[in-house]
């Protein structure tokens, strides 16, 4: 029983990513989409919060939204995996539920 969490807001304007990290269970997946992708960049104040859950929760970022914003894969926090739309769909199918953190 696992949940796919999506976060679509920049972590610098809302608490959504932090709240999501605080509520995700081990084995869940967090997918950062739209402005949420800024949360996956290295060198921000959020690295520790992500790293703390990084092992137990799988962290992903939607590649198209990264590319659109000029966020290169080399700048992602270690352990964050870019996925394409097909990967997104697969995640929805492979989890028991999806929860959007708006």
């Amino acid at each position: 029983m696992s949940t796919l969490h999506t976060v679509n807001k920049s972590p610098f304007s809302t608490q959504s990513l932090l709240s999501c990290l605080n509520h995700a269970k081990d084995g869940d997946t967090i997918l950062m989409i739209e402005d949420g992708v800024y949360g996956a960049a290295k060198g921000t104040g959020l690295g520790d919060a992500l790293a703390a859950r990084g092992g137990a929760v799988s962290l992903c970022v939607l590649a198209s939204d990264m590319e659109a914003r000029g966020l290169e894969a080399s700048r992602l926090i270690d352990g964050v995996t870019p996925v394409d739309y097909a990967g997104f769909v697969e995640m929805v199918v492979n989890n028991d539920r999806t929860q959007s953190w708006l």
Binding site: H23, K25, D28, R97, Q99, S100, L102
Partner: peptide, 18 residues
């Protein structure tokens, strides 16, 4: 508690977010 909230969320068939 926050931990209980996380458990409740993980126990649902459908989660609708607002």
């Amino acid at each position: 508690s926050r931990a209980e909230m996380a458990d409740i969320m993980a126990d649902q068939d459908v989660v609708l977010s607002f």
